[in-house]
Design a protein around this nucleic acid. Structure first.
Length: 281
DNA sequence: ACGAGAACCTGTTTGC
DNA sequence: TGCAAACAGGTTCTCG
């Protein structure tokens, strides 16, 4: 599920609950997710104050007093929801890790498919951590523009759709926002990565930035599992131009859907791509 | 090195 | 109605 906008939404929502607060209880309810949950997770977190909650690509970085950093990835179906401790909903089967603060908040990491992960590292080792070291530029930072994008795409012959999912070229995009950014920039998902240069690259870099900004402002997209930190749904799914809209009218075309077939769905490397063949070339 | 496909896991939707 | 297949927001490994 969660792409950059969903992770950023969670980060923003959890920040007021966690930052500046001491953790008084951390409990893992199973030994592993995609990776083992460190056996000393609680020992290294409890009693420490949260200094910051940051995001790098689709990872959350929970920075603790003393230099410990918890790296959290939500995988496909992960969520992090904060509730007051005195409200005690049934603990769900997929509530894998619980964080509790000194002032009575409980943050629950839930992840039915368990493609997510929680691991520990330190401030010293963060830049060279295997999960982070190869990530490309943050698309919402100054470090990202058309020149950087073109450089990353290089001479690759893979479709631009696949190149944008490669986290080493640009970090944070997933299936939804790649489809939406390609639509906004009028670029066919089937075009080779290397052929996206010049004004096309300008449009694509800008579309990536814009679609992410719009999605963060809408609290991300809730197709199934995504929840904001307060448990509310995101609502950017209502603003999709193409994603999940096979057969519907393209919002940029005024042609007859019955004639053109509207938005098309194709499969690229085993994943669905949605696009308008008339507007995207 | 590159690119395609499979694997990881559970839940929901779709089709016969 | 019931059951099987297809599909789902991600990442990583293997194979050609």
């Amino acid at each position: 599920m969660p792409e950059l906008p969903e992770v950023e939404t969670v980060r923003q929502g959890l920040t007021p609950v966690l930052v500046g607060r001491r953790l008084i209880r951390v409990q893992a309810n199973r030994p592993n997710l995609r990776l083992p949950i460190p056996v000393d997770l609680a020992q290294r977190c409890v009693g420490r104050t949260v200094l910051a909650l940051d995001r790098r690509a689709k990872y959350l970085l929970l920075r603790l007093e003393g230099g410990t950093v918890a790296l959290i990835h939500l995988g496909m179906s992960g969520s992090m929801v904060a509730r007051r401790l005195e409200s005690h909903p049934d603990p769900g089967t997929h509530d894998h890790v619980i964080f509790e603060t000194e002032d009575g908040w409980r943050v629950t990491f839930r992840d039915p498919r368990r493609f997510g992960l929680i691991t520990l590292t330190t401030e010293d080792a963060l830049d060279t951590h295997p999960l982070l070291a190869k990530l490309g530029p943050e698309p919402l930072s100054e470090a990202f523009d058309a020149r950087v994008l073109v450089n990353g795409l290089g001479r690759r012959l893979t479709p631009i759709k696949m190149a944008l999912l490669d986290q080493t070229i640009v970090a944070g995009l997933g299936n939804i926002y790649v489809c939406e950014a390609l639509f906004r920039s009028g670029i066919s998902p089937k075009r080779t990565a290397a052929s996206v240069t010049g004004r096309r690259a300008d449009r694509l870099a800008e579309a990536i930035r814009q679609v992410l900004v719009d999605a963060v402002a809408a609290g991300g997209s809730s197709l199934r599992d995504h929840r904001q930190a307060d448990g509310e749904l995101g609502y950017f799914q209502h603003a999709f131009a193409v994603y999940g809209r096979e057969g519907e009218a393209c919002p940029g075309c005024d042609c007859d859907v019955a004639k053109t077939g509207g938005i098309q769905r194709i499969t690229q490397s085993g994943r669905s791509t949605f696009f308008c063949p008339r507007r995207q070339r």
